[in-house]
Structure formats: structure tokens, C-alpha cells
């Protein structure tokens, strides 16, 4: 049975709507992401994430969305099926978030699941803050969620989005040490990391639910 949730608890259908808004945001911005990646990496980032979310859109059509965990698991699988490095790491992140409670999530649940998921990405991806990767947006978002004084999931995710955005912007001044951008070093220092920007867009998409 689907628990519809409320202002304090994020429900499965809310989560599904959040991902559909994220998929729309990525579709609109895929060319921009690809352009960033062309300047700092190998140029396939926007297309890859758009393709994974396209598959996620179809997969989400077929589920009950009884709770957020089910939605995150479904989206995770579509990313895990992709090659390269970013896709599997997004898949890991969403997949670890899916280990959360099988019921609507409070702000405390959100803080907890994104914390463990981000730790898993850091551990297996081997990236720390300041290395021009998606981690530069994930970590501030986790801190914002953990420090949030609000009981409403919309407000808390809004704070996470702001923090993630600032983190993504900060990658525009970093020299990459991990991932494809590390091959370019200083030459790509002024380019914002497309993975970090996508994380910021992900949290911001919750506002469209």
C-alpha cells in the first residue's frame, strides 16, 4: 500500500515526481552538460546521463512507488547498466540511498541515506572534496541536510540544492585529479564539473514536485 506522505515525510509518489522533474531538467540541459564535458573530459556525459534517465522514466512507469526506496532502487538499476565511470557511480549513489526505510522519509531519514550513499561514492570512486568531481556537490548537500533546522522535506531539499549548487560552482576553480578531466589538468581548471552540476540539478528538482 502506498503511504501518501505529507509535508514532513517524503512519499514514494513524491519521489517519483522528483525524478521525473530531474529527468526533464537533464533533458533540457544535456547539451550544456555535454559542452562542459567536451571542454574538460571526453564529451559524452550529457548524453549518458540523459539516456540513463530516459530508461529510468520508462522503468518508473511500471512500479507502484510504494516508498522512496523503491523509486531510488529502480533509478539506480538504470544507471548501473551503463558503462564508463559516472554512470555506475550515480547508480551506486542512488542504490545506497535505496537502502533507506521502506516507508515515507523524514528530513532525518534523508540526511542519513544521503550521508551513507555519499560515503560509498567517496570510498569506491576514491574522490575527496576539492578534486573536481560529483563529490564536490554531494558533500555540501549532505552537510546541509544534516544541519537543517526544518521539519519539511521540501525546505530541507531546497537547502541541499543551494549547498550543492555552491559546491558545483566551486569546481569551476579546481584542477581535476580524478576522472577524465584530470588528463587536462590546468587547461580545464575554469570549467564547472558536469557531474557536480547534475547533482545540484537533482536536489533542485525536488522543488518542482
Amino acid at each position: 500500500m502506498t503511504d501518501t506522505g505529507d509535508a514532513a515525510r517524503l512519499s514514494g509518489p513524491d519521489t517519483k515526481a522528483w525524478f521525473l522533474a530531474f529527468a526533464d531538467r537533464i533533458s533540457r540541459g544535456a547539451d550544456d552538460l555535454t559542452d562542459l564535458d567536451r571542454r574538460a573530459g571526453d564529451g559524452d556525459f550529457g548524453w549518458n546521463i540523459d539516456t540513463s534517465l530516459g530508461r529510468a522514466r520508462s522503468a518508473l512507469d511500471g512500479i507502484d512507488a510504494a516508498h522512496p526506496a523503491e523509486v531510488f532502487k529502480t533509478v539506480s538499476d538504470t544507471f548501473l547498466a551503463s558503462g564508463g565511470t559516472s554512470g555506475p557511480l550515480f547508480g551506486l549513489w542512488f542504490g545506497r540511498v535505496a537502502h533507506g526505510p521502506e516507508a515515507p522519509w523524514t528530513v532525518a531519514d534523508l540526511a542519513s541515506v544521503f550521508d551513507t550513499a555519499t560515503a560509498a561514492v567517496q570510498r569506491l570512486g576514491g574522490a575527496q572534496v576539492g578534486q573536481k568531481t560529483m563529490v564536490d556537490a554531494m558533500v555540501p548537500a549532505v552537510q546541509a541536510l544534516a544541519g537543517s533546522a526544518t521539519d519539511g522535506w521540501r525546505e530541507a531539499l531546497g537547502e541541499a540544492a543551494e549547498a550543492a549548487h555552491a559546491g558545483a560552482e566551486s569546481t569551476g576553480g579546481m584542477v581535476a585529479r580524478k576522472g577524465r578531466a584530470s588528463y587536462l589538468g590546468e587547461r580545464a581548471a575554469d570549467v564547472v564539473d558536469p557531474g557536480a552540476l547534475s547533482i545540484a540539478w537533482f536536489f533542485a528538482s525536488a522543488a518542482d514536485v
Partner: peptide, 9 residues
Amino acid sequence: LNFNIAADL
């Protein structure tokens, strides 16, 4: 990466 992600999940 892929084997460790599978194990972690």
C-alpha cells in the same frame, strides 16, 4: 569499480 559497486549494494 563495477565489481565493488555490486558488492557494496
